[in-house]
């Protein structure tokens, strides 16, 4: 059971990371900075629980806020660039963050043990959950409560004017601006929101893996972050979740026995999926199709009875 709970944890954390990119993609911004915010959340919340002995919840909150603050700062210069230039600029940000943590050496003795970030040797012993008696199920519950909260929030956002504004900016900036939408505010807000979500994801990641180092926050992870919502589809928050289940649950875990071949298959499946479902695994009709299906099943059930 521990294994399946562990996979559920991983899917939850990666879903949050994907949702942080989803918010930005709604406004048409393809950002690889999410992994930078994820790293900030990881280190900040890790430092707070390991060195300062904080409870996990305020540590996660502060990690998310610090990541959000940096996202807010990144949001302004990011306004000046679009498309591929934005990708390059955000990669640069993530690399700066990665290299900063690569050099951070802050070792403190806590309970006779030297702990804290140790530059290239990484940041070990982020053992809040196990050390405080949290069972795997409790960790899964915490992660998924946060995932559900974020998903519901984004779902709700899509139903109100703010969501329409985000999508309007994503569809056609010029038209949105002509309609009186404040582009600066919308884009910076999306970047900040995405940063906060990535920061929470990072905090949860650090505490569930107990160790982070500069290798963790690679361009590969940044690519995964944007791949989830693109593969899953931007019409619905469930798309990101489906894509994470597909990649983390099926390709990485399910096909582990294939060794190196799963990397080849990974690329191949993405190409196939994008060709057959260019709008993403979950498109705009997903919920209505689901409702129809349920209704059909109910009718059939009624007749059978």
């Amino acid at each position: 059971m521990e294994y399946y709970l562990g996979i559920t944890q991983t899917i939850g954390v990666h879903t949050l990371l994907g949702l942080s990119a989803y918010v930005l993609l709604l406004t048409g911004q393809l950002s690889l900075a999410q992994v930078g915010f994820f790293a900030i959340g990881s280190y900040v919340s890790g430092i707070l629980t390991v060195i300062f002995g904080w409870h996990i919840l305020p540590a996660l909150l502060v990690g998310a806020l610090v990541a959000g603050f940096f996202a807010f700062l990144v949001g302004f210069p990011a306004l000046r660039v679009k498309g591929l230039m934005l990708v390059v600029a955000t990669i640069a940000f993530s690399e700066i963050v990665r290299l900063v943590f690569f050099n951070v050496n802050w070792r403190v003795e806590v309970n006779g043990l030297e702990v804290g970030p140790d530059s290239t040797q990484g940041f070990r012993e982020i053992r809040y959950f196990a050390a405080n008696g949290w069972e795997q199920a409790h960790v899964v519950l915490l992660i998924w409560l946060i995932v559900i909260l974020v998903m519901v929030l984004l779902w709700w956002l899509d139903k109100v004017r703010a969501g329409a504004v985000l999508r309007a900016v994503g569809e056609d900036e010029l038209a949105a601006q002509s309609s009186g939408v404040n582009l600066t505010m919308v884009k910076v807000a999306a970047m900040t929101g995405g940063g906060v979500i990535a920061g929470i994801a990072g905090g949860l990641f650090a505490h569930s893996t107990t160790y982070v180092d500069h290798h963790t926050f690679s361009i590969l992870l940044a690519t995964f972050a944007v791949s989830y919502p693109i593969l899953g589809g931007l019409k619905n928050v469930l798309g990101t979740l489906m894509a994470v289940i597909f990649i983390q649950g099926f390709i990485i875990e399910g096909l582990r026995f294939m060794g190196d071949y799963r990397n080849i298959l990974f690329g191949l499946l993405i190409i196939v999926a994008m060709n057959f479902r260019p709008q993403g695994l979950v498109d705009g009709n997903f919920t209505s199709d689901l409702r129809k299906l349920l209704r059909m099943n109910q009718k059939r059930g009624g007749i059978d009875a």
């Binding site: 070990r124 982020i126 053992r127 196990a130 008696g133 949290w134 893996t209 160790y211 180092d213």
Partner: peptide, 23 residues
Amino acid sequence: SGAAAAMFGVFQKKVGDAGDTGL
């Protein structure tokens, strides 16, 4: 070593520590 550092972290730190839920 990085994978080991993470993996060892999810194990119980001290044997017999009932308060530690690690593997």
